[in-house]
Design a protein around this nucleic acid. Structure first.
Length: 724
RNA sequence: GCGCGGUUAGCUCAGUUGGUAGAGCGCGUCAUUGACGUUGACGAUGUCGGGGGUUCGAAUCCCUCACCGCGCACCA
């Protein structure tokens, strides 16, 4: 028996060494796996932010995926798990800008585009190794030879190609539309990057002028200088006589022309049942303006959330202008009512800036635009038929081509798709994939490279970071080139993101993969929950409750952390992180260690192929039943149940009962019974170790290396036990 | 407003197709010189949120109510 078993199991002396040995073995790369492997199993790691640090959410996600991946590898599949990192455009640029501001007192405009992009890029590259080594510490069996970064050459080529092809298909277009403008970050942001905050605010009811017949209610008085109409419900008898009339008036020293329109979007119960229509500063007003052919170009608030309108309000901040208008109304005797209300204010997730809806020229992906799909493998969408991106997203899941076993998340996904609007993909920052479009006067050129000739100017915007993420399952496999990897490993097999990004990412991968490949991006999606702290709060910097998984690993070992995160946590529900639970599994790792110690000590010189007596055959049969059960759990991604069952078998059955029962036999005089028991103990041990490997890869591998008569060089590539 | 969850032992949570409830932690008592400083045994009378229904049988399926949470939209 190896001397190492005489001391308690020490994860810190083991894990790094084992990981290096695995990496050196080449088995993370599917091309090097031993034996014939006909079926592939592919997973794309959700790429962590390149400048980020590993948090418990990653730790959970990595544990989950690695358990699945290791199981499939042991099942004899040709397994590829692709690692990567995301440049996370806005977050990364904001961080570097902040540093520069702090250290040099300069803004990005002082530094210039080229220099800033260079510096952000360097910063990102410098942080890269840190997050990647943390992922390694989780034991993740990733094929590092296929590592991908969203801004590397191959991924950039994929992004530009995707843009150009969608532009040519008419699915990417430029349009003047109301977007969510973040005045603080000076960029557009997507709906998904908005958080709504409840705030107290005042609802003003007023008249534009003495001779205007309909009182109007608003919380945003300052925008009223941009009004072009008053809308009422078509069935509202109070205002019916005014519909269609036009009023010329002066409001707060600004000449306005207000038409009364009838639109069914108006809620007759709210306020006075009449609303002032400000097309340039509200999405629904914009839509109403489109329906009623009203002018939409009356912009009264600029990109810095300041008034830009002839008259006394010009240059004022929106909030100050609001008060000024209120004063004016009171003086004129036009204010009818002021009441406190609570309303949800849209703010930018990253900067906290209050969103100002503004019409802007932006790039969009049209999700309802009809196009002809040349090739489709998605059931229900014929090659060469006309379809839309929205149809692809819906059909992929409805047809079961993408299996989302969790019904509740399937509903969320469908619900989201039915409310989906065109996706604004341009961002007014500098770090990221720049939009491959050039302008010269009225001419426009979209292509992979700048057009020939002079005076072409490239669009200054970059793409939403989710654009490149949406290509991830196939850009990582070498698309747009027709690579062998792409052919062999796409669609990927499994994806397990947090429910936070179901819509943000999952649906968009379906969109992109559907359009560019006519395939789904993955076969199965298991949405997982969030890891919260012991009180059930989200981990956040401001709360200071962030538990560092690396600290936990240092203290208890990776295997213990993985078990602590996996056991007893139904996939999809939130998890409360409990250090004591992790501690318990550190004990378990040591228990396995001592089981091994006892069995190896008691079987020295024994013949492992000794034929078993009836009692011992029954023990094999008993374990076989567990193998069947656990395998079924694994096939259905019930990771948490499989892990728990094995924990109980190893501790309560094997250690507490079988080993205890064995002691008299091993010390007894019946040599046949002893030999049989020795042989069976070795089988039970090695089978248990194999079954536990997906969850606790390190301690099981370390034990395996010391087992007599092992059949592979690594447990990692051993065969998953079968019902014998 | 639309949608999705949750409510099970002191705490945190499992419970796969309906078959008279489980784990971890904590707590208590006892034991333990022999694989295990990280051991073992024993200890839970839980109205499975309330009510109703389907069923031979419901934590599980259906309806309804209550409370807690989340997402989306709107918020004039």
């Amino acid at each position: 028996m190896d001397e190492k078993f005489k001391k308690p199991y020490d994860p810190s002396a083991t894990e790094t060494r084992i990981y290096e040995a695995w990496e050196k073995s080449g088995y993370f790369n599917p091309d090097n796996l031993p034996g014939p492997r006909n079926e592939t199993f592919t997973v794309a790691l959700p790429p962590p932010n390149v400048t980020g640090i590993l948090h418990l959410g990653h730790a959970y996600e990595d544990s989950l995926q690695d358990a699945v991946v290791r199981y499939m590898r042991m099942q004899g599949k040709k397994v590829l798990w692709v690692p990567g990192a995301d440049s996370a455009a806005i977050a990364t640029q904001a961080r570097v800008e902040k540093n520069i501001q702090k250290d040099e007192g300069k803004s990005r405009h002082d530094i210039g585009r080229e220099e800033l992009v260079k510096r952000v890029g360097e910063f990102a590259k410098n942080s890269e190794s840190s997050i990647l080594s943390q992922v390694r510490r989780m034991g993740a069996s990733l094929d590092w030879s296929r590592y991908a970064y969203t801004l590397d050459d191959k991924r950039t080529s994929a992004v530009l190609t995707a843009f150009v092809r969608m532009y040519e298909a008419g699915l990417i277009y430029r349009g003047n539309r109301i977007v969510n403008w973040d005045p603080k970050g000076q960029t557009t942001i997507s709906d998904d990057e908005i958080v709504h905050e409840e705030r107290k605010s005042k609802l003003y009811t007023f008249l534009y002028s003495k001779d205007f017949p309909i009182p109007v209610a608003t919380t945003r008085l300052e925008t009223k200088v941009g009004d072009v109409a008053v809308a009422v419900h078509p069935d509202d008898v109070r205002y019916k006589e005014f519909v269609g009339k036009e009023f010329k008036l002066t409001f707060c020293e600004t000449p306005l022309s207000i038409r009364v329109i009838a639109d069914k979007e108006v809620d007759p119960e709210y306020g006075t049942g009449a609303l002032g229509v400000t097309p340039a500063h509200s999405i629904i007003d914009w839509e109403m303006a489109e329906r009623h052919n009203l002018p939409k170009d009356k912009i009264v608030i600029n990109e810095y959330a300041k008034m830009s309108v002839e008259g006394p309000l010009n240059g004022l901040k929106a909030v100050d202008a609001r008060e000024k208008v209120a004063e004016w109304l009171r003086e004129q005797g036009l204010m009818e009512k002021e009441e406190e209300v609570t309303q949800n204010v849209a703010t930018a997730e990253r900067t906290g800036g209050i969103i100002e809806p503004l019409p802007k020229l932006q790039w969009f992906i049209g999700v309802d635009r009809v196009f002809t799909i040349p090739h489709s493998e998605i059931p229900g969408i014929e090659s060469g038929s006309e379809t839309t991106l929205k149809t692809i997203m819906r059909t992929a899941v409805e047809s079961g081509e993408v299996s989302m076993p969790q019904e509740n998340f399937r509903k969320v996904y469908m619900n989201w798709i039915s409310n989906l609007h065109d996706w604004c993909i341009s961002r007014q920052i500098w770090f990221g994939h720049r939009i491959p479009v050039w302008y010269k006067g009225d001419e426009i050129f979209c292509g992979l490279e700048a057009p020939g000739g002079t005076n072409w100017e490239q669009d200054p915007d970059v793409l939403d970071t989710w654009f490149s993420s949406a290509l991830w399952t196939f850009s990582t496999l070498g698309w747009p080139e027709k690579t062998l990897d792409l052919k062999e490993f796409h669609p990927t097999s499994f994806m397990s993101p947090a429910y936070e990004i179901l819509t943000l990412w999952v649906s968009r991968m379906v969109l992109m993969s559907g359009f560019h490949l006519g395939q789904v991006p993955f076969r199965t999606v298991m949405i997982h929950g969030l890891v919260r702290d012991k009180q059930g709060r989200k981990f956040s910097k401001s709360l200071g409750n962030g538990a560092d998984p690396i600290d936990t690993i240092d203290k208890y070992g990776t295997d213990a952390l993985r078990m602590g995160l996996l056991v007893g946590t139904a996939i999809g529900n939130d998890i409360r992180f409990d250090e004591d639970k992790v501690k318990g599994y550190k004990h378990f790792a040591n228990k396995l260690w001592n089981i091994t110690r006892f069995i190896l000590e008691s079987t020295e010189g024994a013949d492992p192929h000794m034929s078993l007596n009836e009692t011992d055959q029954a023990l094999i049969a008993e374990l076989d039943a567990i193998v069947v059960d656990v395998t079924l759990d694994m096939e259905n991604y019930r990771i948490y149940m499989a892990a728990e069952k094995l924990y109980h078998y190893a501790w309560d059955r094997l250690a507490a009962e079988l080993i205890e029962d064995s002691k008299p036999i091993l010390l007894g005089t019946d040599e046949t019974a002893k030999a049989s028991r020795q042989a069976v103990l070795l089988v039970l041990l090695s089978t248990t170790i194999k079954l536990l490997h997906p969850f606790m890869p390190f301690v099981t591998e370390e034990i395996y290396q010391s087992l007599p008569g092992k059949s592979s060089d690594f447990l990692m590539v051993e065969k998953w036990p079968t019902n014998s």
